[in-house]
Design a protein around this nucleic acid. Structure first.
Length: 121
RNA sequence: GGAGCAGCCUGGAUGCACGCCGGCCAUUGCAGGACGGGGUGGCGGGAGGAAAGUCCGGGCUCCACAGGGCAAGGUGCUGGCUAACGGCCAGUCGCAGCGAUGCGCAGGAAAGUGCCACAGAAAACAGACCGCCUCCCGGGCAACCGGGCGGUAAGGGUGAAACGGUGCGGUAAGAGCGCACCGCGCACGGCGUGAGUCGGGCGGCACGGCAAACCCCACCUGGAGCAAGAGCCAAUAGGGGAGCAUGACUGGCCCGGUCGCUCCCGGGUAGCUCGCUGGAGCCUGCAGGCAACUGCAGGCCUAGAUGAAUGUGCGUCGCCCGCCGCAAGGCGGGGACAGGACCCGGCUUACAGGGCUGCUCCGGUU
RNA sequence: GGUCCCGUAGCUCAGCUGGAUAGAGUACUGGCCUCCGAAGCCAGGGGUCGCGCGUUCGAAUCGCGCCGGGAUCG
C-alpha cells in the first residue's frame, strides 16, 4: 500500500487550463463542506487527481501554505475515499485561515464522501 | 542594587515512519543505437533576520547605442566610504536630556514674484492711533485748557511677529545720540582639507518670517524590466477590405533618427529548454584606517521551484507558564513575526523569548 | 514585476489645489402638524479628519515614514 500513500506529479493538476475546465465547465459536480468548496469532473484516467486553490484573500503566504499542505496530506493518505478517475479541485474559503489541521482534514473527508455520492448517483 | 542609553548575537536540538523539490550514481525498460523522458534503488542537499513592504540604489538583459536643447523628477551642512544610493562612517551647528546619548529635507530671503488671517495706527520702500515735548496764538490769577508750525518714538494697547535688548549718561521730550555688556554684520589673524571655531578689532544696526510657497544655485537621472531576453524555429508569413499620408514610431516636446502606418475579417500567439544561480559571495588570519571600509593570503560552495518543493504523525531532551508536592518530581499547556521566485547593497515595518559587550545617572558598603 | 487611487459624523460624500468656520444629505433624538402614522417644518446630539513625527504663529489641508482598503497593466 506504499504506492497509494504517495503524491507524485501525475496525480496533481498542473495547468491553468485544467483548472479552468473544472471551474467554468458546467458538467463538473460542485459540493460545499465547511470552509471548503469542491469540484469534480471525470478525467479519463484510472486515478483521481487533485488541484488546490488558495487565493491571497485567505491569508498571507504562511497561512496559505499551511492550508495547502494539510489538504495535500489528507489527499495523500486517503486517496481511495475520492471518486476514481476524476479531477478534484478544492477551493479554500477565507474562513479556512482559522481552521486547524484536523478540521481541514475532516472538511475534506466530508467533501469527498459528498462527491462520491453525487458522482456515483 | 536601582533607573537608563547605545551596539551586537541568537531566533530550539534530536530520533523514527510516510511523503515532496531538485542534484549525482546505479538499474530497469520505451527505442535499431545515442540523446531524452518514465519507473525503482542508493548517497548527500533543501527558506529568513526580516525571505515582507516595494521606499531608494546598482548589476544583468533588450530597445532606434542614448547625441544636443527644453521640460520633468530627485538630492541638498562638511569630509570620507562605496559599484551606486535618498545608505553608512567621522565631524560641524541647532534643539532636547543632569548625563550616557537622541533627533534634525541643516544651501540661498541685500535675483525676482508671492503670502503673513483676526486684532492692531501700522505687517514690511515704513509710517504715527493714543501719547510725550519746545515754540507760537487764544483763554484763565494760577494749575491748566483749546488750536497751530514742528521735534520725537521712551510709554500704552494688538499680535506668532512691531525695524536690536538691558543698564548708565544725555535731552525740551527723546533717540546708538554717546558708553559698557549681550546680539547682529564686516574684513583680518590663529587652528582645521572643510562645515566651522577661537581671538582681538571695526561698524552704530542696515538685513522681520515663510523656499516641507513659486523659485534660484550646485549636483544627479535615457527608457523598460527575468512575464527582461535568447533558443528548439524552418515560415515570423502571405491574403481581402477600409482609412490616413499636414501620417506613424522612438522616454514627455523640439532638433536629430527610423518607417509607410492604423483599423476590420481571417490566421497565429501552444509547449519545452536556457537565462537560473559562483556572487560587489561566505569564513578565518594579517595589514592600513578613529570608523564606515579597503588590500593581501588561505579555506569553503551554501535552495533553484514554475497551480510553484522544505510537510504530516509519534517520541526524547532543553526553555517558559499554571496546578499538586516539604523536596526529588508529576500532570497539563505554550513557543513569536513570518515562506525564496533573476541577483546583490541599503532603508522601513513586524517579532515570543534568550544572551553578550560598552557607557551614563542615582543610592549603599568598604 | 510595474502603475495608480482612496481613508473626514452610524452611512454616502464636500472642504485639501490656494493654510486661519469642520460642513451637506441621510440616519438618530425631541418638538410642531395629524384621530394615528408617513411626508413636511423647526431644533439638537454625534468627529483622535486612518496613525506617528515634523515645517509653521497656526495643519483635515504642506513634507516624510507607516497602517488599512481598492483598482489596473503585463
Amino acid at each position: 500500500m506504499a504506492a497509494a500513500a504517495r503524491f507524485p506529479k501525475s496525480v496533481r493538476l498542473r495547468r491553468r487550463a485544467e483548472f479552468l475546465k473544472l471551474q467554468e465547465g458546467k458538467q463538473s459536480v460542485q459540493v460545499s463542506a465547511a470552509c471548503l468548496l469542491a469540484l469534480a469532473l471525470p478525467n479519463g484516467r484510472e486515478t483521481a487527481r487533485l488541484g488546490l486553490t488558495v487565493s491571497s484573500k485567505v491569508g498571507n503566504a504562511v497561512t496559505r501554505n499551511r492550508i495547502r499542505r494539510h489538504l495535500r496530506e489528507w489527499f495523500r493518505t486517503h486517496i481511495e475515499e475520492l471518486p476514481k478517475g476524476h479531477d478534484v479541485v478544492i477551493i479554500a474559503r477565507s474562513s479556512a485561515a482559522a481552521a486547524s489541521g484536523e478540521e481541514l482534514g475532516s472538511a475534506f473527508a466530508r467533501a469527498a464522501s459528498l462527491l462520491k455520492k453525487k458522482v456515483g448517483a
